[in-house]
Design a protein around this nucleic acid. Structure first.
Lengths: 335, 335
DNA sequence: AAGCGGTTTCGAAGCGCTTCGACCGGTGAA
DNA sequence: TTCACCGGTCGAAGCGCTTCGAAACCGCTT
């Protein structure tokens, strides 16, 4: 490992001069700076984190806590994680991966040992047990998801409430009068995960506003669950013509189930989903959807965190506006 | 942050005594140790990484390089990553996440800065550009996947060759005489990713050994690709009754495509897959499969790495034996 | 009572880097 | 010509932790 003293010797200056030449925190003459830079290049020096945290400085590491509970959609989380890493690198930071089974403990550990400078917390629940930790410690953090009491915390998320509304607005505009929301698996609501409930709120509010008949059903995943919920919906709401799905792995099976019951999509039934664009686009009938912008969420989260670390004030809540992409699964009622 | 001097003062000993009491690297009297432990507990002390790397010690961080190229199956990678984190934590290590677009550079950086003690490299290609780095540096590493020249490196992988053979053996035992392999997307072979080709080798070797007619076709993903490959196979091999699929997202669409062409699975056509168990089990016809043991691979990789770090000799190649799970997609020919 | 081996503890040094205070030489002003 | 000032550089200290060498102390033996 090349160290700063090697560079200093090579450039014929003192280590502190090298440090300043590289950090720019003090003026260094052009000539010297060039010699230092040359030495750095020749020796392949890179400032190691070795002495940095030891001298009370930043470690340039961000922790990313991903619980990986059941009921969350893996590709979304992964895309998010990748975008976090990419964005972090763009800010000269690295990313430490924390998973559940450790999650809470992990955050505490990272905070107290100074392993990471800050933490990004995902899959935030309404009353998340990790919140006290984040509040009490002096560990800067950004939450992905909005808890019940977001005061004093920094949160980013898709505006799920608006997403729910947007789907209903779209269906209403197409003339549908009876709509249903097929939601995430029950455990997601039991955990009271924030985003799922906010979507329900938006859905219900918009349905009421438009004077539509509506129903909300959580639903597990898999072909059987899809078939069951489809049958149940048609039984309970015979006039149903508009469905919103918020359950990634169920999108495809649900379409199948409806078709199996003799309903064509979008001929007899219009369907919109809140899910990642690839899932929507690759379904047997490409689905009109509000996509979950995982990548952008990751980038945003990192930006916010970096600004916090720099001491800047950041907004408490950042809700990304939903965008609806029309595909082949929605049509005017009775078309 | 509580530091070692705080503990020392509280326990009425010197910092070095605390260090020794905690590490056990020198004998410390029972009484003193107990006092130290009490102080640690009362103050909530945890040895920070701060001064550790600075004093030439280990940082207790493992880097995990996941390229995230196209054509790899996200859930597999994620499961792997999670198991790596879990296993690492069990060995008191943390995990730093590196992705591509940085991959090669990232490994170099980590190695030279001492950010991480060691690295786990995934998605290894036959002639992986990262290999020279891993060889030249004194950075301990474990590869997931086996390159063309594994000398001097430590590799873990599923024994894909054996997996290919196992599938063919199974089909042959059921009486099938004409078999085909539907492989991963072409880019996977173009990149010459090791595992994909080893599977092909095993498949071909076993087919030859059993005297079966066989064909191998890479294949993209998606419903259209599935339909196309199904038609092509039946055209080129009219007597085809056994298919091996090595392409996670294609399993489901392929069954669909065959059924669409009037072939029942397993009545007319037996199908086995090499894929994660959940994919196989949740298909419309549960598929007899050799599962990719991502979680075990992660655990193994970490174990090997930890042992290397401890200075122990480790086997150069660890190939996990494939296990075939019979499900509903295979049956005796003509049954 | 002095010497000895063994145990237990301490002090100091050092890891790689940053940063503070100070020094040094040159410039423009008085 | 002297002096204040400033840009540019250096030396030293310090971050939290580990570790080496040695001191201190114990109970025994002579």
């Amino acid at each position: 490992m090349v160290k700063i003293t090697d560079v200093a010797r090579r450039a014929g200056v003192s280590p502190s001069t090298v440090s300043y030449a590289l950090s720019g925190k003090r003026p260094i003459s052009d000539a010297t700076r060039r010699r230092v830079q040359a030495a750095v290049r020749e020796l392949g020096y890179r400032a190691g984190p070795a002495g940095r945290p030891a001298s009370g400085r930043r470690s340039k590491v961000l922790a990313l806590a991903v619980p990986m509970r059941s009921g969350i959609h893996v590709p979304v989380v992964t895309e998010f994680a990748v975008s976090v890493v990419t964005a972090a690198r763009a800010h000269d930071h690295d990313v430490l991966l924390l998973t559940q089974g450790e999650g809470e403990e992990g955050i505490g550990r990272v905070a107290e040992t100074g392993l990471a400078d800050a933490v990004i917390v995902t899959d935030v629940q309404l009353h998340d047990p990790r919140l006290p930790l984040l509040r009490s410690r002096s560990l800067p953090s950004v939450l992905v998801g909005v808890p019940a009491e977001p005061d004093g915390l920094t949160c980013v998320d898709l505006d799920f409430r608006a997403a729910g509304e947007l789907c209903v607005d779209h269906l209403a505009r197409l003339g549908h009068r009876v709509v249903a929301l097929v939601g995430s698996p029950p455990e997601v609501y039991v955990r009271r995960t924030a985003f799922a409930r906010r979507l329900v709120e938006g859905f219900t509010a918009a349905a009421d506003r438009h004077g539509l008949a509506s129903a909300v059903h959580p639903c597990g995943t898999g072909r059987d669950a899809a078939r069951a919920i489809a049958e149940r919906l048609l039984r309970e709401l015979p006039a149903l013509t508009g469905v919103v799905v918020h359950n990634e792995p169920l999108v495809e099976p649900l379409i199948e189930a409806f078709e199996h019951l003799g309903l064509r999509v979008p001929g007899d039934l219009s369907l919109t989903a809140v899910c990642p664009a690839p899932v929507a686009a690759s379904a047997r009938v490409p689905v009109t959807s509000v996509s979950v912008p995982s990548a952008e969420l990751g980038t945003r989260a990192v930006h916010l965190l970096v600004r916090k670390l720099a001491g800047a004030a950041v907004p408490q809540r950042t809700l990304l506006p939903p965008r609806l992409t029309e595909r082949a699964s929605t049509a005017p009622r009775g078309a």
